[in-house]
């Protein structure tokens, strides 16, 4: 299953390391990653594949949410279908 991970928050060292570290720990493969500063905010976007992961999407969402709270950014992970549904015909 493909998911989209988004991270939004104040820029600081180590954000990508913590998020990708957590994903690696649970065998979530990162297929694409982009990062930019948008209106002063750090924004990162990852396409992730959960095919070999030991976690369900819901469980991963909880872990990433906790991580976000710890490092002071907002992290979402969503099934890619929601974006396809809303933006592609």
């Amino acid at each position: 299953m493909k998911a989209v991970v988004t991270v939004i928050g104040k820029d600081k060292p180590g954000i990508i390391a913590s998020v990708s570290g957590l994903l690696a720990e649970h065998s979530v493969n990162i297929e694409d990653i982009s990062q930019t500063i948008m209106s002063g905010n750090f924004t990162m976007l990852m396409y992730a594949d959960l095919k070999n992961s030991d976690l369900s999407l819901a469980a991963l969402a909880d872990l990433l949410n906790d991580l976000g709270k710890r490092i002071g950014v907002s992290i979402h992970v969503q099934h890619e279908d929601i974006f396809n549904a809303m933006h592609k015909i």
Binding site: V4, D32, T43, E80, H87
Partner: peptide, 16 residues
């Protein structure tokens, strides 16, 4: 592939 703008548009719709 989806553009970053589209993805963040959805996030904003929910968040804000």
């Amino acid at each position: 592939m989806l553009s970053n703008k589209e993805i963040f548009e959805t996030i904003d719709m929910v968040e804000k």
